[in-house]
Amino acid sequence: MNPVETTADHRPFAPATLDLGDLLLRPWSRETDIPGGAVAGVIAAAADPAIALWNPIRAADRAGAEAYLDRWATGWANGTTAAFAVTDTAGGELLGNVALRWIDRADGLAMIGYWLLPGARGRGVATRATRAVTSWGITTAGTRRTEIAHAVGNEESCRVAERCGYPAEGILRASHRFGDGEYHAEHLHARLATDPEPAALPVR
């Protein structure tokens, strides 16, 4: 049997700002410049029912929000996680979060996740931001395979994955405990670095 061939310059994630024109993606930290401050933005996100169910953030108070931001800052510092605050370019308003993390850097395997505040939903923000971070991970860190796992009941996340060129690969039964305390089955989606770019998004 031939040995498995390895490629691989799978690099640490290095801090970067991604400018999408009307959207700006910046590394999260306590100092991330958004109206009202990063801590208040995280506390507001944690209180949203949809985020609390599908992407629970343990940040009901300042201490919890600071701990959340410090984890993202540590991920940037050691190159294991690239967490971006998604903001509106015009006013700097916080819209959401996209985070890419290494699952197995030696193998080029990463996972991406996202959440949006209510006012940003239905505008294609998650799709555009996730596409941008996916491409950034491939070109700057050498991600070989990037996965998305979301609860089967989270249909909005499923649509984002599909629009970002992540085909569904199967169902993971009772795989993750979500914000309601229950284990949910998840859809597993994945995109390979060798996959074609997804179709262009319609102009809004």
Rank of each mutant, 00 (worst) to 15 (best):
2 N>R: 15
2 N>A: 14
3 P>E: 08
3 P>N: 05
4 V>Y: 06
5 E>K: 12
6 T>S: 11
9 D>L: 14
9 D>R: 14
9 D>H: 15
10 H>Y: 14
12 P>H: 02
14 A>D: 09
14 A>M: 10
15 P>H: 14
19 D>E: 05
20 L>I: 11
21 G>N: 09
23 L>E: 03
23 L>Q: 03
25 L>R: 03
27 P>Y: 04
28 W>S: 08
28 W>K: 08
29 S>I: 11
32 T>E: 13
33 D>N: 14
38 A>E: 14
38 A>H: 14
39 V>G: 04
39 V>P: 10
42 V>D: 00
46 A>T: 13
47 A>C: 09
51 I>C: 09
52 A>W: 06
54 W>D: 07
56 P>G: 05
58 R>H: 08
59 A>W: 10
60 A>N: 06
61 D>E: 10
62 R>C: 13
62 R>N: 13
63 A>T: 07
63 A>C: 01
64 G>T: 05
67 A>Y: 09
67 A>W: 10
69 L>F: 04
70 D>H: 09
70 D>K: 12
73 A>W: 07
77 A>S: 00
78 N>E: 12
79 G>R: 12
81 T>G: 06
85 A>E: 06
87 T>C: 15
87 T>Q: 14
88 D>E: 15
88 D>G: 09
89 T>L: 08
89 T>W: 04
91 G>W: 09
92 G>F: 02
93 E>W: 10
94 L>E: 08
95 L>I: 02
98 V>I: 01
99 A>R: 04
100 L>H: 11
103 I>N: 13
103 I>Q: 13
106 A>W: 05
109 L>A: 11
109 L>W: 15
111 M>D: 15
114 Y>D: 00
116 L>W: 10
116 L>C: 08
119 G>D: 14
119 G>H: 15
119 G>Q: 15
123 R>D: 03
125 V>M: 05
125 V>W: 04
126 A>Y: 14
127 T>G: 06
128 R>K: 10
129 A>M: 12
134 T>Y: 04
136 W>R: 09
139 T>E: 14
139 T>R: 09
143 T>G: 08
144 R>N: 07
145 R>N: 04
145 R>P: 04
146 T>P: 01
150 H>S: 07
150 H>M: 11
150 H>L: 13
155 E>L: 08
156 E>K: 14
156 E>W: 06
158 C>E: 06
160 V>R: 01
161 A>T: 00
162 E>W: 01
164 C>D: 01
166 Y>H: 14
167 P>G: 05
167 P>M: 07
168 A>E: 15
169 E>P: 05
171 I>W: 07
173 R>M: 10
174 A>D: 03
174 A>I: 04
174 A>W: 01
175 S>P: 02
176 H>C: 07
177 R>H: 07
179 G>F: 03
179 G>S: 11
180 D>W: 06
180 D>M: 05
181 G>Q: 03
183 Y>C: 11
185 A>R: 13
186 E>W: 06
186 E>F: 03
191 R>E: 08
192 L>E: 01
194 T>F: 00
194 T>D: 10
195 D>H: 06
196 P>N: 01
197 E>P: 00
199 A>S: 15
200 A>K: 07
201 L>G: 01
201 L>T: 01
202 P>Q: 02
202 P>E: 01
202 P>K: 04
202 P>W: 09
204 R>K: 08
204 R>T: 13
